[in-house]
């Protein structure tokens, strides 16, 4: 207990750093994956190739990727950029597949109607396709969020600040409470991010308050679990 009080500042500070370092890959990965996922859905020829490439990216184990990135990016091994880039790659790998499924879930008739009333491809994307793909995209980014937050702690073994520091320090000092603090901190961040994401989903997709097809969302969730756990 006294350890908790004595180190409250450090705990809060590291938790904030952890939240920041995981927010970056989640957001950047989402933004990059949307156009790629759209292309994968739009052009069948590219679909197989794109999905195969993101599948391979996801197959690369995390710690080796953290180690290999400095020599690819020219960064120092302790640079947080390595871990952030690696996590962004994983976020893209998960999101591209989900985004492609999400765009495929939009009814073709709706798209044709939009075109028929004079929407350009650009405007149709922003005001028809993206909103209708929203629920599935949301389920994807929630998976990305949880896995990014949990993976970031592995970065601590190569010296990048995260809640993983408490795991290593607690283990070396044989002090279980410190490890538990790290685990609880990770879960707290994951829960807060998840609440924020579903709140954003409510605000951006008010029509989705009663999900139209829970089965579709559930299937997408199960698929993301299988393919990107």
């Amino acid at each position: 207990m006294s350890w908790l009080l004595g180190n409250a500042d450090q705990i809060v500070q590291i938790t904030l750093v952890h939240a920041w370092y995981s927010a970056l890959p989640i957001v950047i990965g989402f933004v990059i994956a949307i156009p790629i996922g759209w292309l994968a859905n739009r052009y069948r020829v590219g679909r197989g190739t794109i999905l195969a490439v993101v599948g391979l990216l996801y197959a690369v184990p995390s710690l080796p990727l953290f180690v290999a990135l400095p020599s690819l990016l020219g960064t120092r091994i302790l640079d947080p950029a390595n871990v952030i880039v690696a996590l962004t790659i994983y976020a893209i790998a998960i999101m591209v597949r989900t985004a492609s499924d999400a765009f495929a879930s939009v009814e073709i008739d709706v798209l044709l109607s939009a075109t028929a009333v004079g929407f350009s491809t650009w405007r149709r994307f922003w005001s028809v396709e993206l909103p209708l793909a929203g629920p599935v995209l949301l389920s994807g980014i929630r998976v990305v969020s949880v896995s990014t937050i949990s993976l970031l702690s592995v970065g601590s073994v190569i010296g990048v600040t995260s809640l993983g520091y408490f795991f290593l320090d607690g283990f070396q000092r044989a002090f279980a409470l410190e490890i538990i603090v790290g685990i609880v901190g990770t879960i707290v961040i994951a829960v807060i991010f998840d609440l924020l994401l579903s709140l954003a989903g409510r605000l951006l997709m008010p029509w989705n308050a009663r999900p139209p097809s829970r089965r579709a969302v559930r299937r997408a969730e199960a698929r993301t679990l299988v393919e990107a756990a």
């Binding site: 949880v146 592995v154 408490f166 795991f167 607690g170 283990f171 490890i179 538990i180 685990i183 990770t186």
Partner: peptide, 12 residues
């Protein structure tokens, strides 16, 4: 299970 950080569980 997925939200739990593996490294933390391992060391604990």
């Amino acid at each position: 299970l997925r939200a739990l950080p593996t490294l933390g569980l391992l060391l604990l």
